[in-house]
Simulated scan of single mutants.
Amino acid sequence: MTRMARRRILTREGIVAAGVAVADRSGIEGVSMRSVGKELGVEGMSLYHHVTNKDDLLDALAAWVFEQIELPPADAEWRSAMERRAQSARLVLRAHPWAIGMLESRPTPSLALLRHHDRVLGWLFDAGFSAASATHAFSAVDAFVYGFALSESTLPFQTEEGTEADFADAVAPDPAEYPNLARSLSDLLGAGSYSYADEFDVGLTFILDSVERSLTA
């Protein structure tokens, strides 16, 4: 087999997938034309046939993340759609924490972002929200989702493994000095069923309950 036959066939989709792999391993700061080329086993210059430059690659990564988030159909009931979308976004961002800071930060919005935002606003408009109230609801939910995902990505324990109790024991505060904190930890963890991950569902319910009340007020 000749060297030409063995050469990897590059596509934009394959380059984006390699960029995701690099970002998952090294963070978004580790993504470059050179590092993605290395991931693919080619010279970085080879990528320029499919992506214009690093900014184009980062735009494509942001679009890829939006495409991973479940987007219920346009005629879905607004609250269940917002909840499903938020749950999906949280899972995607937990799997790819490098994306938290870049979803809304790219100077050139992708078609995936525009489609995503248009769909969300459509649910809210169909439910009777005004442009202002729909924007308030959208912003509140996304701020919570992104903030929670960021918190999860920086916790000193893995929430899905139920290690909160072990961590709390290791850093147990002095009840005489921090009585309220000690009481809170004791009450929450004493039953052995508390998981920080459950706070997402609780917080999202609080927000959507408030949004729903504003619609009927």
Rank of each mutant, 00 (worst) to 15 (best):
F157P: 07
S133Y: 09
T135N: 14
Q158K: 08
D169S: 07
F148Y: 15
F125P: 00
S105G: 10
L150A: 15
F129S: 13
A149T: 09
L114Q: 11
F129A: 09
D118Q: 13
L189S: 01
V141H: 07
P173I: 09
A149G: 14
S139M: 09
H116A: 10
D187R: 13
A149P: 06
D126Y: 01
S195C: 05
S184R: 13
A131I: 12
Y194D: 01
T154R: 13
A197W: 01
A176G: 11
H136K: 10
A137Y: 11
S193P: 02
D169V: 10
A140G: 02
S195V: 05
L150G: 14
S133I: 07
T159S: 14
D169M: 13
L189A: 02
D126M: 02
D142T: 11
S153H: 08
D174G: 03
G147L: 12
A182L: 00
A143W: 04
A112T: 02
P173A: 10
F157T: 12
G147K: 03
S130G: 14
E199P: 02
Y178A: 13
Q158F: 04
A197R: 14
A137I: 09
A127Y: 07
T135R: 14
A197V: 06
A134L: 02
A165V: 13
A132N: 09
S139K: 11
P175F: 04
R106K: 06
D169C: 05
D198G: 07
W123N: 06
S151G: 09
Q158H: 05
G122F: 05
E199F: 00
E199L: 10
T135P: 03
G192I: 07
F138A: 06
L155T: 06
P156A: 05
F138T: 08
A134H: 01
S110T: 12
Y146D: 01
R183W: 02
A168N: 03
D187Q: 07
H117T: 15
H117Q: 12
A137D: 15
T163K: 06
G128P: 15
A143C: 11
L155Y: 09
E164D: 04
L114D: 08
F129P: 12
A191W: 00
R119M: 15
D174W: 04
D198K: 04
F138I: 11
S139G: 12
A170T: 06
W123Y: 15
A149W: 11
A165N: 03
V120M: 12
A140N: 05
D166P: 06
D126F: 01
A168P: 09
N180L: 13
L121G: 02
V171T: 12
L181T: 03
P107E: 03
F125S: 15
P175I: 08
G122Q: 06
A170C: 04
L188G: 02
G128Y: 07
E164T: 07
G162S: 10
A170N: 09
V120C: 07
E199Y: 00
W123L: 08
G122D: 11
H116E: 11
E160S: 14
S105V: 06
V120I: 15
L188V: 01
